[in-house]
Design a protein around this nucleic acid. Structure first.
Length: 257
DNA sequence: ATGGCGGCTCAAAGCCGA
């Protein structure tokens, strides 16, 4: 089973690109981020016609996440628990059968957190605390899971072109990275890093020729619970998609389990 | 990378992302 994550940076702007990639990659399940659409306006029939179940958790203008699946999803849950006042659409999860075993798959869009001297940075760290609690509850309940999405976290120096340039940035701050490793060190597997020790970026800024200079960062991740990690065969980054017409600034990352 | 691009919005200039 092929499960992918992709920050598409707007469903309206990426309608053709997303269809082209789905035809080429043929994933069984896709976790999307930054759909930038309310649920009512999401072009669901385009993807239903391609054989996908479509579940969205959107909001106007910004953020928004979705799950597409070729096999039926159960118990779709919207929003990350732990703060009823949080109105940003950044988390959706559902159960999917993988070789007869039920696994909860989540599409997450972790807050950017910049600038760090504004409420945005504590909001990011608070969100990461809530994600930690979510994962702890999952492990306690012995429900296997896949946390797929745009984490806005550069885990290690190898995950960016110039670590010095990222010092102080919310994506690379010590608090951010330690929160990421606190999550991972509960026993989760970083699918890409587990299967590939080389540098592999998932995002290149639109500005300053970042793509041409290969000035990228790895911020899109799939974290796997132990039962899913046991099934991991491959993890790849579809880097070539960044060179397409009208690309997102992120590229798809996928696992084969 | 103190933001040069791109996408969004009560539709023009301003906000947001990373």
């Amino acid at each position: 089973m092929k499960i992918a994550t992709w920050n598409i940076n707007g469903i309206k702007a990426r309608l053709e690109t997303l269809q082209a990639w789905l035809k080429e990659a043929e994933p069984d399940l896709v976790a999307l981020q930054e759909i930038k659409s309310i649920d009512e306006n999401f072009p669901r029939t385009v993807f239903e016609d391609m054989g996908y179940e479509v579940h969205t958790h959107g909001q106007k203008g910004f953020n928004g996440v979705a799950l597409f699946s070729k096999t039926p999803l159960e118990d779709v849950q919207r929003g990350l628990p732990g703060d009823d006042s949080d109105e940003q659409a950044r988390f959706i999860s559902a159960l999917i059968a993988v070789e007869g075993k039920m696994v909860r798959v989540a599409s997450l869009y972790l807050p950017n957190g910049n600038p760090v001297d504004t409420p945005k940075f504590p909001y990011k760290l608070g969100w990461m605390d809530r994600l930690q609690s979510w994962a702890e509850a999952q492990l306690k309940a012995e429900e296997d899971f896949i946390l797929a999405g745009d984490y806005n976290v550069i885990p290690q120096p190898i995950d960016c072109h110039d670590p010095k340039a990222w010092e102080g940035d919310a994506l690379y701050r010590p608090e951010t990275r330690s929160a990421f490793f606190r999550l991972k060190n509960m026993g989760l597997t970083d699918a890409l890093r587990q299967t590939n020790q080389d540098q592999a970026y998932t995002f290149w800024d639109y500005q300053a020729g970042a793509w041409q200079k290969n000035n990228g960062i790895r911020i899109d991740h799939l974290l796997l619970s132990p039962g899913v990690a046991d099934m991991l065969r491959r993890c790849e980054v579809d880097k070539h998609v960044r060179a397409w017409e009208k690309p997102s600034d992120h590229v798809p990352v996928w696992i084969d389990i």
